[in-house]
Simulated scan of single mutants.
Amino acid sequence: MMIRPIRVAVNGYGVIGKRVADAVKAQNDMALIGVADVATDWRTRVLETKGVPLFAATPQALDAFRAAGRQTAGGLDDLLGEVDVIVDCTPKRVAAGNVEHYRDRGLKFILQGGEKHAVTGHSFVAEANFETAIGRQATRVVSCNTTATVRTLSALKRAGLLQRARGTLLRRATDPWESHQGGIMNTLVPEPEIPSHQGPDARTVDPDLDVVTMAVKAPETIAHLHYWTIQMTRPADKEEVLDAFRSSSRILLMKNEHGLDALNAVKELMADQSRPRSDLYEVALWSDMLTVQGDELFYAYMVDNQAIVVPETIDAIRALDGRETSGRRSITATDLAMGIEGRLFVEAGTPTPSPIGNQT
């Protein structure tokens, strides 16, 4: 008997929403029912070429679409009546205002990292806590920087190597598509508090993490760059640490001999690999740079702020739906559908890792 696919809607067709929508369409066990938004410009006109129904996210937006001569399939309530899970990718604090509406309808919903943990009471990174989200009404996929932090620290934790972690984050100034509207030039802007919010946020996923982060905003828009100092539980050699990172299909180990020595080069590789929008879904970690001194570990990696949370969101959909109870199987399905190959050519000759998750 054929199992009905998970019916999914996306509210907010911006940087994350449009990527989530495409990723949902790529899954064999999901169906994208529609997208809700308020923008009448080019951002939502693309949906017409993709055959995705557009819904007005607010009554005011419905009026605006009509005034612009745009056809819609109805309002947000019409869309919510047709789906099992709603992924809210609206701007910060807008999503929190939508939660009561979702709860009143008994809908399962996913928020993004711009909202507070308390809004859903659960925060999600697939390799760390897929099982705890199974069957819940709601979860929150943490931010790009927090996702990368949890992925890498969880790999070390699974290997029994993690004692405490201290990280410095160089953050891109703004999203590339809107860099003409703001951002910073010719300066660096440190976050005013230590720890920066990413460390405490990582502990909403795994309360046992001993992690402190510091962050500074930099005048570029390609990606984030993290530097980490790790106190390990014991001395270990470099290859053991690399094996810990290889256990994750969503950590990409890069070698300098391949010329991937800067953020822009890695993004160009993603384009050459025909990744949609040149998206890097993995944490891209420089294996040659990684250094071990006794029980201390030092490494750096790149985070694509526009893409890294997308596979996590797909896994969160499956977890909330509850039919898939294996994190490993969900991660494998998501990676296959999205072309996340683990190593690409970067570490040729090393085995492709088995995704981590509930091993049942």
Rank of each mutant, 00 (worst) to 15 (best):
M302R: 04
M302P: 00
M302Q: 10
M302L: 10
M302A: 10
M302V: 14
V303F: 02
V303H: 00
D304H: 01
D304I: 09
D304N: 15
D304P: 01
N305Y: 05
N305Q: 15
N305P: 06
N305I: 03
N305A: 05
Q306F: 01
Q306G: 07
Q306E: 14
Q306S: 14
A307R: 00
A307Y: 01
A307M: 02
I308Q: 04
I308L: 05
I308P: 00
V309M: 10
V309Y: 02
V309L: 12
V309T: 15
V310R: 00
V310T: 15
V310G: 01
V310N: 02
V310K: 01
V310P: 00
P311Y: 06
P311N: 05
P311C: 07
P311L: 07
P311K: 04
P311S: 08
E312L: 07
E312P: 07
E312D: 15
E312C: 11
E312H: 15
T313Y: 13
T313N: 14
T313S: 08
T313P: 02
I314A: 13
I314R: 10
I314T: 12
I314L: 15
I314M: 12
I314W: 11
D315G: 13
D315E: 15
D315W: 01
D315P: 04
A316K: 08
A316V: 09
A316R: 06
A316Y: 02
I317Y: 10
I317K: 06
I317V: 15
I317W: 03
I317E: 11
R318M: 14
R318W: 04
R318G: 11
R318L: 07
R318Y: 12
A319H: 06
A319I: 06
A319Q: 11
A319N: 08
A319L: 07
A319S: 10
L320D: 11
D321K: 06
D321H: 15
D321A: 09
D321E: 13
D321R: 08
D321L: 11
G322V: 04
G322C: 02
G322H: 06
G322I: 05
R323N: 03
R323G: 14
R323E: 11
R323P: 14
R323V: 08
E324A: 11
E324G: 08
E324C: 14
E324H: 14
E324T: 09
E324F: 06
E324M: 09
T325F: 02
T325K: 13
T325G: 10
T325D: 05
T325E: 14
T325R: 15
T325M: 10
S326I: 07
S326C: 07
S326L: 09
G327H: 02
G327K: 09
G327Y: 04
G327E: 03
R328V: 15
R328H: 08
R328G: 03
R329A: 13
R329I: 06
R329G: 05
R329D: 06
S330H: 03
S330L: 01
S330V: 01
I331K: 02
I331Q: 06
T332S: 12
T332M: 10
T332V: 08
